[in-house]
């Protein structure tokens, strides 16, 4: 029989990980065009609603694409459609909130497929939480980022580092956030991001050199688990195939 000292009892179980009841699986889709990634999200949303899967966090890097949210105004795309085609930039009208934005190589795009009824039924709290994930993740690289009143996203010194746009269907989320790691910022010149005439920045520009994308991804996974109180589990399936229904093999706790 073990006897606990008073200190042990009052201190509770020593540094056990905080009580994390919910599981969130994360998966790196690698480089994937906007259309297939969107299809993938929609299928996962349907499966999340049906209770077939747990919460899911998708990582993807898109080839050059301009996406327009529900509140997008055409005048915020500065380049002509011909010009976009000529530059190899796709253009998508989506069902997420927010205005126009750009995705492309060097940008980490995160699509959380979460059932918010198991977290908080609060869209504003969700947007603030996504901002917190980005703020905390870039802080690991020494970047002090923050919020700007009235302009969702993550900002450093008046420049936008991360953007947010979300869709909800019966409290299940899709779309999400995009963080500029080593994005070629010139591409933002073709649009007015989120309808705001504010400059855009990247971790590379702020730090002088780009941190490895995998490190940033790991930071996001860790902070995402903290902010949403979820145990993060990796899904290791080959990206690019029909990874909508990946096996649960290879799951491990971080």
């Amino acid at each position: 029989m073990t006897v606990s000292t008073l200190a042990e009892v009052t201190a509770g179980p020593a540094p056990a990980p905080a009580a994390r009841q919910r599981v969130c699986e994360y998966q790196d889709l690698g480089r994937m065009a906007y259309g297939p990634a969107w299809d993938c999200q929609r299928q996962l949303v349907a499966r999340r609603k049906a209770g077939e899967i747990s919460d899911r966090l998708l990582f993807v890097e898109h080839p050059h694409v301009v996406s327009m949210g529900r509140n997008a105004r055409e005048q915020n795309i500065l380049a002509s459609p011909e010009m976009l085609v000529q530059k190899g930039i796709e253009c998508w009208e989506t069902d997420r909130g927010g205005d126009v934005t750009y995705h492309g190589p060097g940008q980490i795009v995160c699509y959380p497929i979460l059932d918010l009824t198991e977290w908080k039924r609060d869209v504003l709290a969700y947007v603030r939480a996504l901002e917190q994930v980005m703020i905390d993740a870039v802080a690991e690289f020494g970047i002090v980022a923050g919020r700007v009143t009235g302009a969702s996203g993550v900002w450093v010194g008046g420049e936008k580092l991360g953007a947010i746009g979300v869709h909800l269907s019966r409290w299940v989320t899709s779309h999400g956030f995009a963080l500029n790691v080593s994005t070629d910022l010139d591409y933002f010149g073709y649009i007015i991001p989120c309808g705001l005439t504010k400059p855009v920045t990247s971790m590379q520009r702020l730090l002088g050199e780009a941190p490895p994308a995998s490190d940033v991804q790991q930071a996001i996974v860790g902070r995402f688990g903290d902010v949403f109180g979820a145990a993060m589990t990796e899904l290791t399936t080959a990206a690019g195939d029909d990874s909508v229904a990946p096996q649960r093999a290879g799951a491990r706790n971080l």
């Binding site: 949210g69 529900r70 509140n71 069902d95 997420r96 909130g97 927010g98 869209v123 504003l124 969700y126 947007v127 969702s152 947010i164 746009g165 979300v166 869709h167 909800l168 269907s169 019966r170």
Partner: peptide, 17 residues
């Protein structure tokens, strides 16, 4: 439960069934 309309708040677009 079929989507009837969509509503938006800043940055979030929600389907309402």
């Amino acid at each position: 439960d079929e989507p009837l309309f969509e509503i938006s708040t800043d940055k979030v677009d929600s389907e309402v069934p």
